[in-house]
Amino acid sequence: MTALPTTTATAAAEASSNKRSRTPYLLIAPGVIWMLLFLVLPILMMVYVSFWTQTTFKIEPILTTKSWQTFFASDTYLGALWTTVRIWLIVLAATLLVGYPTALFVGLFVRNKTTATALLVLCVIPFWTSFLIRVLAWRPMLGKEGAINIILQHLHIVSQPIDALLFTELSVVIGMTQIYCVFMVGPIAFMLGRIDPSLIEAARDLGAGFGRIFRTIIFPLSLPGVVVGAIFVSVMVLGEFATAAALSGRKVNLLGNIIVTQVGSLKWAFAAVAGVVLTVIMGVVVAALLRLVDLKREL
């Protein structure tokens, strides 16, 4: 009588521990299956297709490196590659330059958490409209007869409208900086908000002025936020094509634009090559950024 309940209890405990040990796998299974089917498999497929034989009207699964050779021999593609890297670096620097002070204000100088959250929500408001509208809204702003030129002329700062504002690399950079800046502000503001105010007071008490404190305490402690923000911005900018298409008047061709055109003209192998190149660049960039800080320790 005494033994029986014990055995049942043990069995039940075993069953439940078995169940518990299976639970994590069940939880992760949908995600893993999804990623395998729709991320890993397509990437492998992309790499595979990039070695297929492309003729003008059809593509055949006969392995060749012709597409790769064409890609690296063509000024158009290499130019696009270079433009992508350049725009990415400029936008990354611009978002950091605009975003860090903003984050510094929101995360460090606004000590009221409610106000800080409200300010961050304010940053997100542009996202309540669609991507296309946000991009196209820059046209009436930057155009030859756009808002900025009208204002500058009215203030007699310029006599002739500046045409360099729209349909140039500058307009692409302006548009992208505006769109992606918030992804830089958020993570940095989060990290800055976590800095214990007494650390800054302690540094002041030890004789350090604000510049010193920023360099030795605030910036190093916010670095994980900078890295996370930089990863967000990098991944999104490297894969961009819409902003460039809408604001450059097709003058700025990014790798993303190349892929869109190639797919449009059914040149799957070329598109795959560009896709692989882009994926490799992103991988390298993310890996390099992650080496800057030990995110596991910081978050």
């Binding site: 007494s198 650390l199 302690a202 540094a203 008490d205 030890l206 004789g207 350090a208 305490i217 190093p220």
Partner: peptide
């Protein structure tokens, strides 16, 4: 000098660098 209740040590610096902070950064 101010010694904080929660110590307010700089978490990203080692013991030596924490102690040396004032000497390195004071005006």
């Amino acid at each position: 000098g101010f010694v904080f209740q929660n110590f307010a040590l700089f978490p990203h610096l080692s013991v030596v660098d924490n102690v040396a902070f004032g000497l390195k950064n004071a005006p």
